[in-house]
């Protein structure tokens, strides 16, 4: 079980959070002007890296806020947490 540093509340148990998948997916600004392939890409296709990953989490049983996290998918090391409008941090080496 991870210990997740919510950017608003501090460190809390993973059980308080809900996973939100890959971060920084841009929803097409005009969905109806978006082709089927591009729309399907947005809907269904996600990165699945072995390594560092920027992903979304929601502190569902806490402050209810969404935030982003840089986590290593193998070691579960957490390199950064940041608010949705914070600048994207660089991925660690």
């Amino acid at each position: 079980m991870l210990l997740i540093p919510c950017p608003w509340c501090g460190e809390r148990d993973e059980t308080e959070f809900r996973y939100g998948g890959q971060a920084h997916l841009a929803r097409p600004l005009d969905p109806h002007a978006t082709g089927d392939a591009e729309w399907a890409e947005y809907l269904f296709m996600r990165d699945n890296p072995k390594g560092w990953f920027r992903e979304r989490w929601n502190h569902a049983a806490g402050c209810r806020r969404w935030f982003n996290m840089v986590r290593h998918t193998v070691t579960h090391e957490i390199a950064a947490v940041y608010k949705p409008d914070d600048p994207k941090p660089e991925l660690p080496e």
Partner: peptide, 17 residues
């Protein structure tokens, strides 16, 4: 109920802040 509230919050916070 809980799922819907989370869903609404998700759009408000992440797409339409």
């Amino acid at each position: 109920a809980a799922r819907v509230l989370e869903w609404l919050e998700e759009w408000l916070q992440t797409e339409w802040p």
